[in-house]
């Protein structure tokens, strides 16, 4: 997934409550067997959960963090988030779709919008008073 994000000009940071030493050992002993060249982005250590608390994803009972994912635009604004409890992993296709949609909308100066289920290449909507009641003409899910 990382190469696709890199192509879109997106940086990645991962965060857990593990130490930076643990990150290094995990990367060197296990992850590099799963990802060629190991993990290409910074792995942050949030011991104590301060960052997770700031982002609403720190669970005090277990002392660990939920699967929280935040997309931030170049202005530093959070545009999307998804938070899962630990047993279910994420869907990176949906992450890529959301990044592409937000990039397109931002490029348009926030004038265009992408309807539900939009994928790259499909028409976007240009909300305006004249469109009220006529969305059906341009978008048929």
């Amino acid at each position: 997934m990382y190469p696709e994000l890199k192509k879109l000009g997106v940086d990645v940071l991962s965060v857990s409550t593990d130490s930076k030493f643990s990150h290094k050992i995990w990367d060197e002993t296990e992850l590099e067997k799963m990802v060629e060249g190991g993990i290409p982005f910074p792995m942050l250590s949030d011991q104590g959960g301060q960052i997770g608390t700031l982002y609403g994803v720190y669970d005090e009972d277990s002392g660990t963090e939920l699967r929280g994912r935040f997309i931030m635009d170049p202005d530093g604004v959070i545009q999307a988030t998804e938070v899962l409890t630990p047993p279910v992993g994420r869907n990176t296709d949906e992450l890529l779709r959301q990044v592409q949609a937000f990039q397109l909308v931002r490029e348009s100066g926030w004038k265009e919008a992408t309807p539900s289920g939009w994928t790259p290449g499909e028409p976007t909507l240009k909300p305006s008073p004249s469109m009220v009641g006529k969305v059906w003409e341009v978008w048929k899910p």
Partner: peptide, 9 residues
Amino acid sequence: KWLVLCFYP
């Protein structure tokens, strides 16, 4: 830059 911040357990 665009950024994805990912927390995990």
